[in-house]
Amino acid sequence: MSVRRLAPKEVQPESFAFTAENLVWAEKTIAKYPAGRQASAVIPLLMRAQEQAGGWVSEPAMRYVGDMLGMAPIRVYEIATFYTQFQLQPVGRKAHIQVCGTTPCMLKGAGDLMKVCKRRINAEPFHLSENGDFSWEEVECAGTCTNAPMIQVWKDVYEDLTSEDLDKILDAFERGEKPTSGPQNGRITSAPVTGLRVLTSPELYDGSMVGQGAGLALAREAIAARANGETAPPAPPPAAAAAAPPAPPKSDPAPAAPPPAKAVEAAGSADSEKPAKPVAPPPGEKASD
């Protein structure tokens, strides 16, 4: 943490106003709060102002939002300086790289990513690169610890990064492209890098088990027994209960959906063979660390 100040006067724009589209959105957002509590909308509005202005909140934007909400400018200023998610200085035109530096990412190599940023963008965070296209900062946990280390650019996260990945991502932004977000090592969301390990039987997903569960048979028996006048239905034998795979709840339509065959296949093999290695995604994998 350091003292956060407004950008110097020279870089502040003359004025700020929402685009027509954002104005409609802002009015809707303000209407979400009860009368007299419009000031509660200050954070979403500031965020939208930041997005519209290319990633930073200028002084005119603060006054504009304050006027819109009937707040004194100092109150908006307090909020904008309190939350580090609001950038008070201009950020890179093409990308503002937010490198997570909290423990899991730090352990998984966030330091290497910051080295890349220092080399390619600027030795200091919050400073623009020479051509003004990039800037970077270290942020606290952005919530994808499973896929550490990660960076966030605008609203997208890039996970499972190596220095080389980051270089590629920066190259892509440099060219004006938008690199594919998400894990960069080929895994799907935060699934295990070693592939799926549970709920892998194909019949779980082909509908063949619907209404066939052993547990269901037991329940039917118990209902029949109660109907016959027995007060205490015998507890199902523990062995049978343990052996019976749990029937999927009827209300849940998920199992009926066809599973991605490839994943099931891969996972199936992973399940059978204990040494987990063979299905691991190959390049840049650092699991052995």
Binding site: M1, V3, R4, A72, I74, R75, Y77, E78, T81, F82
Partner: peptide
């Protein structure tokens, strides 16, 4: 409403 506490 002119004085305020900025930063954190």
């Amino acid at each position: 409403a002119e004085l305020g506490a900025i930063g954190r």
